[in-house]
């Protein structure tokens, strides 16, 4: 297979040869690449790396120092004082991490289950009022969720759900569900419905056909959806504050309080590092699953 469809460009046809440089050339047999373009590529790549990692690296330095006099460019003394405070006996970090993980796991499990079912309907079924349904599912993307939480807080109070883990899970659930649904409908669209029908003709029941045929193909998608739902929950600050009333202390709440209230930059940086680790780790692990599912990332931007 040596031929390249000119139109399909299925091979890295050096095609679309950057047409920018076409000056006089002498005796060159080999494809010429303008110097500017050759340099621009690695430069842009390095800049992307710096852009993403740049602001996070000072956090890592700050977390290990307790003396960094202005205007020195490097800390004057390394220390674990920030960590001692962040993890020490008065600190509630461990508890906050446990709370965050608990809420995140519950939100992830519920949102993924709801999203997987709804995604199948969106991808495979003829639905009356489809446009309206899609609009409703997009609402949490556009409407700031705290507008909802402020309105609902009274109801949570009256139902005895305010200041409780259940309340916070319920408050975070709709946005996570909406994103999981949009994500899963994309995943379902990649599964051929004919395969389940084939399984049915071979004697599998509806549930069995799903479990044996579609589910294995969806596994990666479900992992990604669950991961995103978890991260949406892990990042949330204001909903937790409004419905949890400060009683339910998650990592973001602790971080905000430390950052705004304590002036202890080392402790703030240490908590921030703890808070940033799961998102980085999960995304790095799921990088392969993510390829080509960029819209999935919509939800985590917030």
């Amino acid at each position: 297979m040596t031929e390249t469809g000119l139109a399909t460009g299925s091979r890295p046809v050096q095609g679309a040869r950057p047409v920018s440089g076409a000056g006089p050339v002498r005796g060159a047999r080999r494809p010429r690449r303008p110097l500017g373009v050759g340099l621009a590529r690695p430069t842009v790549l390095i800049l992307t790396g710096l852009w993403v990692a740049g602001p996070l690296l000072p956090l890592a330095v700050q977390a290990f120092t307790d003396q960094w006099f202005y205007p020195d460019l490097w800390p004057n003394r390394w220390s674990l004082a920030g960590w001692e405070q962040a993890l020490g006996p008065q600190s509630r970090l461990a508890e906050a991490v446990a709370t965050s993980i608990g809420i995140g796991a519950a939100v992830a499990a519920l949102a993924t289950a709801l999203g997987a079912a709804a995604g199948r309907a969106l991808a495979w079924h003829r639905l009356p009022g489809r446009r309206l349904i899609e609009l409703v599912l997009l609402a949490p993307v556009l409407v700031p969720p705290f507008a909802v939480a402020m309105g609902a807080q009274v109801v949570y109070l009256r139902a005895g759900l305010a200041d409780s883990l259940t309340g916070v899970v319920l408050a975070q659930l709709p946005a996570a569900t909406a994103y999981a649904t949009l994500l899963m409908s994309g995943m379902w669209a990649g599964v051929d419905p004919a395969l389940e029908r084939q399984a049915r003709t071979l004697g599998a029941g509806a549930w069995r056909a799903f479990r044996e045929v579609s589910l294995p193909q969806l596994r990666g998608g479900l992992v990604v959806a669950a991961m995103f739902a978890f991260l949406i929950s892990w990042s949330d600050y204001l909903l937790t504050l409004l419905i949890g009333g400060g009683v339910v202390t998650t990592v973001p709440l602790l971080l905000f309080a430390t950052a705004a209230g304590s002036g202890n930059q080392a402790a703030t940086a240490a908590i921030a590092l703890v808070a940033v680790a799961p998102p980085l780790l999960l995304t790095a692990l799921a990088a392969r699953q993510l390829a080509g599912r960029d819209t999935a990332l919509l939800g985590v931007g917030r």
Binding site: E3, T4, L6, V13, Q14, G15, A16, R17
Partner: peptide, 11 residues
């Protein structure tokens, strides 16, 4: 097709 793409200046 490669031949054509070379004549066109795309390769």
């Amino acid at each position: 097709s490669t031949l054509l793409s070379i004549v066109a200046g795309l390769s």
